[in-house]
Amino acid sequence: MSISASKAPDDPAIAARKARLSTLAKAPSARLRALWANYSSDLPAHEVLRAPEVGAVMVRGRAGATGAPFNLGEMTVTRCSVRLDSGAVGHGHVQGRDRDAALLAALIDALAEEGEADALDAAILAPLRAEAEARKTTRAAKAAATKVEFFTMVRGEN
């Protein structure tokens, strides 16, 4: 499938930011809030470049999974952009309509760009990844238990 060539996809800084933003986008907002509260008791000083905005994106599929793209339907997304005093800019996108979560995602992104990436990863992103992985693994294990194990009856020769 087409991978965007707009920026080098193998740039480790971009790969790290992409992974971070993807984790934040999918995080349950209550968990994101709780993990942030453990990390810091307040929000860093920032300028809002784009106030949290709720919108929709059109999700596409492909005919027959591999053919022509088609519009499947929309999903809600909230986005937000901030700039810290240092000048670091953060962009947050989260699934759903939680404006606070979008602001937090943007702030975490900006702080990580500013040099706090390792601390944020340990405190917020690693737990979010682990929890997502655990949810996924549990569902996969339950699905595996519903896999049919066929056995064939031996038929007589006459």
Partner: peptide, 21 residues
């Protein structure tokens, strides 16, 4: 839905990579 601004469109989803229930 008609009240929401549209931010764009996604890449076609990869159903071959689905975590299947």
């Amino acid at each position: 839905r008609t009240t929401l601004p549209r931010f764009g469109a996604t890449r076609p989803v990869e159903t071959g990579a689905m975590d299947c229930d």
